[in-house]
Simulated assay, not measured.
Amino acid sequence: MGWDISPSGVQGVLTKAGKAAEGLSNAGKTLETTMTSAAKSAGTVTQGGHEKDGTMGLVAGALGQFIEAHQRRLAYIAARTSNSLTGAAKATNAYVQGDLDMAADAQREALKEPKIDLPGVGDGKGAK
């Protein structure tokens, strides 16, 4: 099995995926801000919506539980996405470096002094 990787193609995909991941991250930040605002706007358990001790109402509590339940999942998705993009970039760089190393090895081999081994020369069997 051979490898045929286009580093510029990988870079293009990583750029697009990075932009999509950035959008996902921004959506997560917006969700957190929006949910906090929504919870505050939902009011409290007392009539009139303002309780001095800050006890939240049922809707605010449900929104808080929702965020708490999904916050770990969202953080996992963000970390996994970042690790995947970084891993793909590192693997491609290693591939390119491997190509460069192989080319340098081949060039070194080509530049070595040739060894000429003619029959009868230097082996004591040659002409006298």
Rank of each mutant, 00 (worst) to 15 (best):
G43A: 07
Q97M: 14
G54F: 04
K29L: 07
G61S: 14
N26H: 10
L24Y: 15
D101C: 13
A38P: 00
D99Q: 09
H50I: 15
A89W: 04
S41Y: 06
E113F: 04
A27I: 03
G122A: 11
Q71E: 09
K52R: 14
R73A: 12
V59R: 11
K40I: 01
M35D: 01
F66D: 00
L100V: 14
G54E: 05
A106V: 06
D53G: 02
D99W: 01
G98M: 13
V59P: 01
E109H: 04
S82M: 10
K112V: 00
G23P: 02
Q97H: 14
A38N: 00
E68I: 05
F66S: 00
N83I: 03
A88C: 06
Q47H: 11
Q107F: 13
G18V: 10
A106E: 06
I67S: 07
K52W: 15
G120Q: 01
V96R: 13
K90L: 03
R80M: 15
A21V: 12
T86D: 14
L24P: 05
K29D: 08
Y95N: 07
T81S: 15
N93D: 15
K29C: 02
A89C: 09
E22Q: 13
G57C: 10
L24W: 12
A27S: 04
D101K: 13
L85H: 12
K29M: 05
S37T: 00
S84A: 11
H50F: 15
G43T: 05
A75W: 03
K19N: 07
H70W: 11
T86C: 10
G87E: 12
T33F: 08
K115F: 13
A69K: 04
G122F: 12
R72G: 09
G23E: 05
V96E: 06
V96P: 02
K115T: 13
K115C: 09
T86S: 15
T34K: 06
D117K: 14
N26Q: 08
A94W: 13
Q65H: 13
Y95L: 05
N26D: 07
F66I: 02
L24F: 15
L85I: 14
A69F: 01
H50R: 15
Y76H: 05
G43F: 08
A62D: 06
G18D: 04
R72I: 08
E109C: 00
D53H: 01
D123V: 08
G28C: 03
A88P: 04
G49P: 03
V96T: 12
G48N: 06
A62F: 10
A88M: 10
E109T: 02
T44A: 11
A106Q: 10
L118G: 03
M35E: 01
A20R: 04
S84Q: 09
S41C: 00
N93G: 11
A69Y: 00
A78E: 10
A17E: 04
A103P: 01
G87P: 02
E109Y: 05
S41P: 00
N83H: 10
D53C: 01
T92N: 07
S37A: 03
G120F: 00
G87C: 08
V96M: 11
A110H: 06
G61H: 09
K16P: 00
H50S: 15
G122K: 10
A17I: 07
H70I: 10
A38F: 01
S41I: 03
R80T: 13
H70Y: 11
